[in-house]
Amino acid sequence: MTPLFQTGNAVRVRKGSPPGHIRTPFYVRGCKGVIERVAGEYRNPEELAFGRFDTPVVPLYRVRFQQQEVWPDYQGNPQDSLDVEIFEFWLEPANPEKT
């Protein structure tokens, strides 16, 4: 699968909370970040969790968030950041100009 995003792309994490086993932490859902790197392709944990071990691999990214984007009341250097691994199907393009 060719990755949809490249390093530097602005992305937003989808907001959903489907039932099942989700590896996208609650706290970044709906947040905007930037692709730090394409981190390879792995099997989908949401399927692996139900014993389906042979579904196709999907691109995984490291997404960098500003702490203040994730926690509006964050105390500390405004540059402080948070890198999280997120699978492609949890991401959508974000307009970097708009917040």
């Binding site: 099942g20 086993h21 590896r23 944990p45 949401e46 692996l48 969790a49 139900f50 014993g51 071990f53």
Partner: peptide, 9 residues
């Protein structure tokens, strides 16, 4: 025989 994700789930 099982996945780490099954463990977590």
């Amino acid at each position: 025989l099982m996945s780490v994700d099954q463990l977590r789930k």
